[in-house]
């Protein structure tokens, strides 16, 4: 199987060349965020206040890692279900987010916003958390440390395995059933 090696941050050229179903290995940095962090970011945007992280050009990984054992950069860290972020996602894409990593389906509103903003959505393998954590070399808290596992981290990743689930053209590799 052909696997594309991608260096982050994502450029518009790279994004335009990614198609639903492509297997990729991501190297560079991503930020993390899940339910609680999304809610806080969204509420700040609603109030017109500044965000604690700059989303411009970033890839966000929907994850709440398990604690790291001594000697590990991070504990098991597989993707969480993306649809729970759907309510907040278009507002974040409008602020410059270029990629998302999660698992499962997205709403029509998210897909429309992805097309408008030129954004790609990657699926990581749900439940492959121990395997995925091997590609995460460093984890540092960027914001909302009080949220624990739900804080916003910056992960440094090397050859992080993912699949293009929905590309910037709105095409999906997810089975419709």
């Amino acid at each position: 199987m052909n696997i594309k090696k991608i260096t982050l941050p994502l450029t518009d050229d790279v994004i335009s060349d990614l198609h639903a179903g492509d297997s990729v290995l991501l190297t560079g940095t991503v930020i993390t965020g899940r339910d609680a962090a999304h809610k806080r970011l969204y509420e700040l945007l609603e109030k017109g206040e500044e965000l604690p992280v700059n989303l411009q050009g970033e890839v966000i990984y929907y994850v709440g890692p398990a604690p790291a054992k001594p000697g590990h950069a991070v504990g098991p860290a597989g993707p969480t279900s993306s649809y729970r972020m759907d309510k907040y996602t278009p507002a974040l894409l409008d602020r410059g987010l270029k990629g998302m990593i999660g698992k499962g389906a997205r709403s029509e509103a998210v897909i429309e916003s992805m097309k408008k903003n030129g954004v790609v959505y990657f699926a990581a393998i749900g439940g492959a958390a121990a395997l995925i954590s091997r590609s995460i070399k460093k984890a540092e808290v960027l914001a909302y440390e009080d949220l624990g596992t739900e804080a916003i981290y910056r992960f440094t990743v090397e050859d992080f395995p993912a699949i293009v689930a929905i590309d910037a053209y709105g095409h999906s590799a997810l089975a419709k059933g």
């Binding site: 709440g64 504990g75 098991p76 439940g127």
Partner: peptide, 11 residues
């Protein structure tokens, strides 16, 4: 996970 005794899944 089994070899390193770490959780199968983060959840």
């Amino acid at each position: 996970a089994s070899e390193e005794e770490i959780p199968i899944c983060q959840d």
